[in-house]
Amino acid sequence: MDRYGENLTKMAYNYVKDWKLAEDIVQDVFVVCCHHYDKLDEILDFKPWIYRLTINKSKDVLKSASYRKTVIQSSLLTIFKSNDPPPDMLLNKRSEEETLSKSVLKLPVKYREVIILYYYEELSIAKIGDILTLNSNTVKTRLKTQGIKLPENIPGFVEQQDFEEIDWDREAVNFDRGIIGNENKSGVIGIDIPSLTPQKWMWHLWGNKTSDLTVVEVHEGSQTAYPILDNGWKWTMQLGSAVNGADAHVPCAITIPKPGEWAFLLYDGDELFDVLVYEIEE
């Protein structure tokens, strides 16, 4: 257990943000290991198993009433990459390290845990998926989307978790009358025309429930969200009548800020409706 004790304590701290509580959690994990000592050889991959056990116990603590009553002090995440003492003894660390630590600790747990396992524990995507019982694509998406920069004026119904719906490998296709998108859901006429300068696109939706279309565009490389409608001046526009076989449409002027892989999150009213992914080079 000496091999895993320190890293498991750091992992538990990632969840509960309290060093003493993290140590208690790891002690409980070791007790479970002792109770199953005669069966440890039957565990095919011990490391993912013991990490999963630690994570589950940490999450149980987060759900407990006693934990919710505890006032947790702000701490530093730098312990995950060093052998330094507990957080309260790290106050003299460099300011940039402190800023990074606090930023990571402010992330929701589901993003924080994949960051720690991938960047600090240096586990593979597959191993992280085993530990967290997630598929590899979800792990990759959480690693990408945890840092999405959202403008202050973005509609309130747009949430960080919406960006997990982005499948960057699923590019839109040309399915009918020059409409490029996801068939029988949404698509655009004009995406195949150079769009780094002002251009007109026509959005098409199938099965929408409201007349309000909100579009948020995200650049894969910079992980930054932008408005796109009306050349970036609007988040939302009113949909018009049926056309080209679609249930609703709306034309608008657009300008793509820079080349690269772009995802467009379409909202029908305040509900995420579809995600379109385009490669835009000119």
Rank of each mutant, 00 (worst) to 15 (best):
V32T: 14
W49N: 13
V218N: 01
P194T: 04
Q146D: 09
K149H: 08
T99D: 13
L40W: 13
V109P: 02
L239M: 15
K63I: 01
H219L: 04
A248W: 05
G5C: 11
A225P: 03
P155T: 05
Q73N: 09
F175H: 06
F30A: 00
K106M: 12
V114M: 07
P194S: 07
P155R: 06
F264H: 08
S64K: 11
D167A: 15
K57D: 04
I166A: 05
N244H: 13
F264C: 10
S66Y: 12
Y120E: 15
T99K: 15
W235P: 02
K127N: 10
V215I: 15
I115Y: 13
H204D: 08
D270P: 00
P86E: 11
N231Q: 06
L105W: 02
K59G: 06
S211T: 09
T214F: 09
S186R: 03
S124A: 12
M202Q: 14
Y4W: 10
E122Q: 14
D45M: 07
T133N: 10
S95N: 08
L132F: 12
P198Y: 06
R52T: 10
D28I: 06
E171M: 07
E6Q: 02
G232E: 03
W206S: 07
V26D: 01
I128K: 06
K10Q: 04
R68L: 10
S75K: 02
C252M: 00
G260H: 00
I166V: 15
N244C: 10
A263Q: 06
N153G: 11
D162G: 08
N83W: 09
A248K: 09
V139Y: 00
T133G: 03
A172Q: 06
